[in-house]
């Protein structure tokens, strides 16, 4: 049995502890917002947070989450109110959308640590997340926009 919490809800699972967290989230917990892209930490589509830090869930065994707090895209906000989500809508970021969960989860860690990121900060945080549709210029703009929203007065 492995116990941890996902999006602030406790879960207890009887799974092989070596199973990648990604597949436990997707197949056992039906949280399919976290995506499979490469299986080797090359693309970032599977990015979630473990205790607030970005983790590629396709290579992290579920045992790594034991006793910890996992946050997935479904837990970023309940109502699209996270500044990044609002900025993503404002900049019309997604195309196919498949990589965007991972992009957002990476960007969320960036903004927590660097509330006013420079372009260089964005390059250093986001280069591990591939977007095949080429939404990078909009992701960059949206991160800056979210940072502005946050500094202009938090949530709204």
């Amino acid at each position: 049995m492995i116990s941890f919490s996902v999006n602030r809800r406790p879960v207890k699972l009887d799974v092989d502890p070596s199973t990648p967290l990604l597949w436990v989230l997707r197949d056992n917990l039906a949280l399919t917002g976290t995506k499979f892209g490469c299986g080797m930490a090359q693309c970032g589509a599977c990015t979630v947070h473990i205790d607030g830090e970005a983790v590629r869930s396709c290579v992290a065994a579920v045992s790594r989450a034991e006793g910890k707090e996992v946050t997935t895209i479904e837990g970023l906000s309940a109502d699209l109110s996270h500044p990044l989500q609002r900025a993503w809508i404002a900049e019309d970021v997604p195309q196919c959308g498949y990589c965007q969960s991972g992009q957002l989860m990476s960007a969320a860690v960036l903004l927590r640590e660097k509330p006013r990121p420079t372009d260089e900060d964005i390059d250093q945080a986001m280069t591990g997340n591939i977007c095949r549709c080429g939404t990078y210029p909009r992701i960059r703009k949206a991160i800056h926009r979210a940072a502005e929203m946050m500094s202009a007065g938090g949530a709204k």
Binding site: A41, D123, T127
Partner: peptide, 29 residues
């Protein structure tokens, strides 16, 4: 690759920390 940086403590920066991808053991393959 992926523009990984040393970071303030040698463990990477923001969303690209070492532990983002690296575990405490090698992965098979």
């Amino acid at each position: 690759t992926m523009n990984v940086r040393r970071g303030p403590e040698g463990h990477g920066v923001t969303a690209e920390k070492c532990t983002t991808c690296h575990q405490d053991h090698n992965l098979a393959g």
